[in-house]
């Protein structure tokens, strides 16, 4: 049994994310959670108490859109960093066809995967679309932001458009939260994953098990660290 599957021990360490990628990710993650909490407080009356965390409903009203702006900018950074590695490829369809084995954790029945599997790519692309949708529809719920954009482009949103914006914003937010739960769960369920985003490394075994094609490439490029363990240990 492996007690060192968090990337800290004697196993081979493979670099997965640079420092700047991790900082970028955590800006998105923190702003997402803040948006989730503040957004849900206005979504359902039973969750209005969440607004007290931000200093009340009136603060949520102006703060939520600005956190949204932070997320959009930071997410754009993630998008540009990762989109090339998230382009669909043939093995994605095989992976999806064998989703049964994915859920059972039988990675040996799955094709060799590059940096991201089809599930991760789904999270990437769906969140990219949802962030864009949430930003555009969010403008319809943000009076000063809307006034600015209307002035910029010389139009006036109709009441029907604003009502649709509110409905779509809520729907897209629910989907984004749902996919976020899948994302967080996958990171917890697949042990050894979280160190990729905390310290930037995973173990060689993690790469071998889940992203073998990527591991081969990293090994080929010498992006691995030798175990620091001495023979005496």
């Amino acid at each position: 049994m492996s007690t060192h599957d968090d990337g800290s021990g004697a196993h081979l360490r493979v670099r997965r994310y640079s420092g700047s990628a991790r900082i970028n990710h955590w800006i998105v993650a923190i702003s997402f959670v803040l948006l989730l909490l503040s957004g849900l407080s206005l979504f359902h009356p039973s969750l209005f108490w969440l607004s007290t965390m931000f200093g009340g409903g009136a603060t949520v009203r102006w703060l939520h859109p600005w956190i949204g702006v932070v997320l959009v900018i930071a997410f754009l950074g993630l998008f540009l960093r990762f989109f090339a590695q998230n382009l669909p490829e043939r093995t994605d369809w095989i992976w999806l066809a064998r989703i049964r084995y994915v859920l059972k954790g039988n990675d040996e029945y799955l094709p060799e995967i590059g940096k991201y599997n089809a599930g991760q790519k789904f999270v990437f692309w769906s969140q990219s679309v949802l962030v864009a949708v949430l930003f555009i529809t969010g403008l319809g719920l943000w009076e000063p932001g809307l006034a600015y954009v209307e002035g910029l482009f010389g139009f006036k949103a109709t009441i029907t458009q604003l009502r649709m914006a509110a409905l779509i914003h809520a729907g897209a937010a629910v989907l984004a939260i749902t996919i976020w739960i899948v994302h967080v769960y996958a990171a917890i369920w697949v042990r050894g994953t979280i160190s990729a985003m905390t310290r930037g490394f995973v173990t060689g075994g993690w790469g071998w098990r889940h992203h073998r094609k990527w591991l081969r490439k990293e090994v080929g490029e010498g992006e691995v660290e030798r175990p620091r363990v001495t023979p005496a240990e």
Partner: peptide, 22 residues
């Protein structure tokens, strides 16, 4: 899912295979 399936852990063999690959 976690209750039924348990965690998806990296095995010592996975680590060995990675070592061999390296």
């Amino acid at each position: 899912h976690h209750l039924l399936q348990g965690p998806n852990r990296v095995t010592p063999e996975d680590e060995e295979n990675a070592e061999k690959l390296a």
